[in-house]
Design a protein around this nucleic acid. Structure first.
Length: 346
DNA sequence: CGCGGGAA
DNA sequence: TTCCCGCGG
């Protein structure tokens, strides 16, 4: 779910045009993307897209076409996959499983009643990303020539680390967690077709990519990154869901600015979580990450993509070939730079 | 969500 | 050319 510091971020969030991102590498939160595809790419009654064997393919559909759109806009995507969650998060993950089980019941009930709109809403909430779906996504990326990084733990932490090393320009996610992990820059709403339907409403709004600079966020509020993490913990993170009773963004910011030192803040408030606050602080300030990755955007292997999507998962050959044509063209335009090595024949 | 065919 | 909307797997 992520930390809800929208109010804090909004004043420094800049709407940008997509072409601002041309030539930039972005570390995209793979789980965040795949979940969104899984939740939204569905039929009227909420059934996801599936191949002939009944395997879900909604995530592949979204990943394939959106990634091509990135490349066509000169964006260099690198997908970052979550690894093993910190133990502190296990309770929250368990809670989410329960919410999904509940949604599953309501989904079936709505179907029974023939209420397709309700059914779809609950179906979306049942979305589960299985390991085979993740493997499929990685396969597809490999065939497309798009790099991915397997994070040892939190993907958002890994993406943040990559921005700090300067390997990517920004992290890309709908959640704000990467800012707590120290991401230099966050891009939200990184979709190409800008119209999005508001939940439960027949209203569509234009959504443009939104860039948040960590330094700007901190200086705007006159706080340090440590203090931002404290605010996050007060309002609630995946490591202390719900946050501290009575604290929203405004009250948390006020307290943090009054007391300054995180230790003083945590002494001043009631702490009802099992995990001590300093342990959670450390998870954000010194998360487990890896330097063991290399970012290379390669020419797409069209044959393998077609074999995978069309032969194995029953995608339409026409659509896939069309999209691959676009991908190859974009690859040549933006990524196939005449490097010194190639000039000298290395 | 994003594609693409048909309407305008 | 742009917009809309039904379908994709």
């Amino acid at each position: 779910m992520g930390v809800d510091i929208k109010e804090l971020v909004e004043p420094v969030a800049r709407e940008v045009e997509l072409n601002l991102l041309t030539g930039k590498a972005v570390a995209i939160d793979a789980y965040n993307s795949l979940y969104q595809f899984l939740a939204t790419i569905r039929q009227k009654d909420g059934t996801p897209l599936m191949d002939a064997q009944g395997n879900i393919t909604s995530h592949l559909n979204g990943l394939f076409y959106r990634t091509i759109n990135y490349v066509e806009n000169g964006i260099r995507p690198v997908y970052v996959f979550d690894g093993k969650p910190p133990e502190v998060k296990l309770r929250e993950l368990e809670r989410r499983q329960q919410v999904k089980a509940e949604a599953e019941k309501r989904y079936l009930e709505a179907l029974e009643r023939g209420d397709l709109e309700e059914a779809r809403i609950y179906a979306q909430q049942t979305s589960r990303l299985t390991s085979s779906m993740v493997e499929d996504a990685k396969k597809l990326l490999t065939y497309m020539g798009i790099p991915f990084v397997q994070a040892p733990s939190e993907g958002e932490a890994q993406a943040a680390f990559m921005t700090r090393r300067g390997d990517v320009w920004a992290s890309g996610s709908q959640d704000y967690d990467s800012l707590l992990f120290g991401s230099v820059r966050l891009v939200r709403n990184l979709a190409i077709t800008g119209k999005r339907k508001l939940p439960r409403k027949e209203v569509y709004v234009e959504v443009k990519p939104e860039v948040v600079e960590l330094e700007e966020l901190l200086s705007f509020h006159g706080i340090t990154r440590e203090q931002l993490v404290v605010i996050g913990i007060l309002v609630g993170t995946d490591y202390n869901p719900g946050g501290v009773k009575g604290y929203g963004v405004k009250k948390a910011l006020k307290l943090v600015k009054e007391l300054g030192d995180p230790v003083k803040v945590f002494k001043a408030i009631p702490w009802e979580f099992e995990t001590p606050p300093d342990v959670i602080m450390q998870l954000f300030l010194e998360p487990e990450v890896t330097e063991n990755y290399s970012l290379q955007w390669r020419e797409p292997d069209k044959e393998k993509v077609i074999k995978f999507l069309v032969d194995e998962h029953q995608f339409s050959i026409n659509r896939v070939e069309n999209a691959l044509e676009r991908l190859e063209k974009a690859y040549k335009t933006f990524f196939k730079q005449a490097s010194l090595e190639s000039w000298f024949g290395f």
